[in-house]
Amino acid sequence: MIDGFILSLFLYFPEDKSEYIPAAISFTIFLILCIFTMRFIVRISRKEEAKAKELENQIMSEQQNKG
């Protein structure tokens, strides 16, 4: 009984649905920024992966030339 009361204190559903508009706008902006950030991180990660692969191939070829 008391748990339901405590949880209901944090819930707020406005009667005027126009109060959802600013929240929807800010959510959309942050979602778009998160998507661009994730794509940026993936792009950088792929470049770093290519550099690491190239370095690995260089080291392996040097070891084969010595052996």
Rank of each mutant, 00 (worst) to 15 (best):
L11D: 07
L7V: 04
I2K: 11
A23I: 15
T37G: 07
L11K: 14
F36S: 00
P14G: 01
A52T: 07
R43D: 03
A24S: 11
G67M: 09
A52Q: 08
S8W: 14
Q63V: 15
G4S: 07
S61C: 01
I41Q: 03
L31C: 07
T37S: 10
I6S: 04
K53H: 05
F36I: 02
N57H: 09
D16K: 04
Q58E: 13
N57P: 00
K17G: 02
I35Q: 05
E56T: 03
F13K: 11
E54S: 05
K66F: 08
F5Y: 13
E56Y: 15
E56L: 15
I41Y: 03
A52W: 07
L33T: 02
A50K: 13
K47V: 01
R46M: 06
S45Y: 14
D16H: 03
L9V: 07
L11N: 07
Q63L: 14
A24T: 14
Q63P: 00
A50H: 05
N65C: 05
F27V: 03
V42Q: 08
F27Q: 05
I44P: 00
K66H: 11
I25L: 07
L31F: 10
L9F: 10
E54N: 03
N57A: 14
V42C: 06
R39T: 01
E19P: 00
F27M: 06
E54P: 00
E15Q: 09
F30G: 00
E54D: 05
C34V: 05
Q63T: 04
E49N: 12
F36Y: 08
F30T: 05
I41F: 01
R39Q: 06
P14N: 04
I29W: 00
M38R: 06
D16I: 04
A24W: 04
D3E: 13
F30I: 04
F13T: 11
T37V: 04
E48R: 12
E19D: 08
I2D: 13
E49S: 10
Q64Y: 15
L33E: 10
D3G: 02
F10E: 06
Y20H: 09
P14S: 02
E19S: 08
S61E: 15
I32F: 02
F30Y: 12
E56D: 03
E49Y: 13
K17W: 06
